[in-house]
């Protein structure tokens, strides 16, 4: 059985030099920016504000609500159930559909105030192995207890959508260990609607239950 190697990651924020003043420009941007940008704007808050609950929404929803004052569209964009998307292409389609529909129903295009435009960004990820390796569930739990937020984030969020592993790293390893039930439970967790510490606690209690069975 392969041990689980914990990795951690760092983000470098890139500026794409592209901005949007209104919904039309936001839509055009979302259609054409690279996947890394879409991922950045839908996940940045999780790390930057990981201590907050309720979690602020993704950047698109935040800007539409707070700058363009379009509460209805903002609510729709913030309701994106990120956990259900297996690829960034699907996630992009969600935002494109929501914006196109809103634009069809809108009679006038509202510009943001000067200085409050939406700036498209992206991130470059640097991945490093940590010194921590788990041989079994008990090991795994004791490491998970103290591993950095970045490591947790990498294995849950980056692995699935950014690296395109189709699944989070923990579920994949649990399944390899033969703990299909635990893998499935892990997949059902909604990591987007809790703080990272809350997420850590929840995973720990699940893993410990299975480890003691």
């Amino acid at each position: 059985m392969q041990p689980f190697v914990f990795y951690t990651k760092y983000d470098q924020t890139l500026l794409l030099g592209r901005r949007a003043r209104n919904l039309q420009a936001l839509l055009e941007g979302i259609k054409s920016v690279p996947d890394a940008s879409l991922y950045f704007h839908t996940h940045r808050f999780l790390l930057q504000h990981h201590f907050l609950s309720p979690e602020p929404p993704n950047d698109f929803a935040y800007w539409v609500t707070e700058v363009l004052n379009d509460d209805a569209l903002g609510e729709r964009l913030s309701s994106a159930d990120l956990v259900q998307y297996d690829s960034l292409a699907d996630l992009r389609a969600f935002f494109v559909d929501a914006l196109e529909e809103s634009l069809r129903q809108t009679e006038r295009v509202v510009d943001s105030p000067r200085g409050e435009e939406f700036h498209f960004m992206a991130s470059r990820i640097f991945v490093l192995p940590t010194p921590y390796t788990a041989e079994g569930l008990n090991d795994f739990a004791s490491i998970l207890e103290h591993i950095s937020i970045s490591a947790l984030y990498y294995h849950i969020f980056d692995a699935k959508l950014r690296l395109g592993h189709d699944d989070n790293d923990f579920s994949r390893w649990f399944a390899d260990l033969g703990h299909e039930g635990l893998a499935a439970k892990m997949r059902l967790l909604d990591p987007y609607t809790q703080t990272m510490e809350g997420l850590r606690t929840q995973i720990l209690s699940m893993v410990r239950r299975y480890a003691n069975d």
């Binding site: 924020t13 890139l14 500026l15 794409l16 030099g17 700036h119």
Partner: peptide, 18 residues
């Protein structure tokens, strides 16, 4: 390298936010 997103320009090189 720029300090805020609003400072980004159209450039041929990568622009980093720090």
């Amino acid at each position: 390298v720029f300090s805020a997103p609003a400072f980004a320009r159209t450039l041929s090189i990568p622009q980093v936010l720090i």
